[in-house]
């Protein structure tokens, strides 16, 4: 027995060593594969950054503040002021936030703290579905359902009926709801149970506990959800283009508005020369805007993680 056991052991040792050697080769190969995959993401981002910056810069260099702060967009007459679009983008995003943030956070509270597990599981599925709907479908529904509803308000206000900033803001609010709900819900669920227990033990009602303890404790997560929502809203083009009316004028809630994102697809096909450079310039402005948002989100999330420790 001893001799055969020894032989087995030796054999096993050999095979393990052999396996280890081939394993190392595989390990090395896979290391390379992962490295390439990882680098490809970095390379894509670097390429996009450089491309957008290089192609967007000339118009800004040429027109300077007239580009960023000019109020008149009239490419045929060499006027390339994008202030109307910047303000329209900011206004639409802000208005969408005003609607989506409170309702999103309250929905998250319901899902995380109030609804029975089974109900919240069903609701969560619907929220996820909402985030999966393609933006062009949102755009279609918005153009058919939301825009005509605003006609009456517009005519009451003495304005011509049509697409409006308000319609765009409502669309965006619906589109960013799922982001805000799911991120906020995760944040609310991550609040340590002791906090709530302590709050309840001190005699707080359930609602007091949620509003005075849980939400403040989940603040950084909710802020991150908000920032992600802002990012999505600011970057949305298709749906907005279909409901906003796209006139490049300084924004007003019931008047048509052209957002930064929509400007590019609307005019791309027929643009050429300086006009096309200006569209690249808009791309650059948008890119910087969204990058700044992303960096803010990361900061907030890091800060939140730091607080947790």
């Amino acid at each position: 027995m001893t001799s055969s056991a020894a032989a087995d052991a030796a054999k096993e040792g050999f095979s393990i060593r052999q396996r280890r050697r081939s394993g190392q080769a595989l390990e090395g190969a896979m290391h390379c594969v992962f490295l390439v995959c990882g680098l490809s993401a970095v390379a894509s981002v670097a390429f996009i950054c450089i491309h957008v910056a290089v192609s967007g810069w000339p118009i800004i260099a040429k027109y300077g503040l007239d580009f960023l702060l000019g109020q008149s967009w009239n490419p045929g007459n060499s006027q390339f002021g994008v202030l109307p679009m910047i303000t329209a983008s900011v206004a639409a995003t802000a208005a969408a936030m005003v609607v989506a943030l409170p309702s999103g956070v309250l929905a998250a509270v319901f899902l995380a703290k109030i609804a029975p597990d089974r109900v919240s599981a069903v609701l969560r599925t619907f929220v996820d579905l909402l985030s999966g709907i393609p933006s062009v479908v949102y755009g279609l529904l918005g153009a058919i359902l939301i825009v005509p509803k605003i006609f009456k308000i517009q005519s009451a206000a003495g304005l011509p009926a049509g697409g409006s900033l308000l319609a765009a803001a409502i669309m965006l609010a619906i589109m960013i709801l799922p982001t805000i709900i799911s991120v906020s819900e995760t944040a609310l669920r991550a609040v340590p149970k002791q906090y709530e227990d302590a709050s309840l033990a001190l005699g707080a009602t359930k609602l007091q506990c949620v509003f005075k303890t849980t939400i403040p404790a989940a603040k950084s997560g909710i802020t991150a959800g908000m920032a992600l929502g802002i990012g999505r809203a600011a970057g949305e083009a298709m749906a907005v283009m279909m409901v906003a009316g796209n006139a490049a004028i300084m924004p007003s809630l019931l008047k048509p508005a052209r957002l930064l994102t929509a400007s590019i697809p609307i005019e791309w096909a027929y643009s050429s020369g300086v006009h096309r450079e200006a569209l690249y310039g808009i791309g650059l402005v948008l890119f910087v805007f969204i990058m700044a948002l992303n960096i803010t989100v990361r900061r907030i999330m890091k800060k939140g993680a730091g607080q947790g420790e």
């Binding site: 008149s72 049509g162 009316g245 796209n246 006139a247 048509p256 609307i266």
Partner: peptide
Amino acid sequence: VSYAAVSD
């Protein structure tokens, strides 16, 4: 007019 709605 600048407020004309633009369709692409």
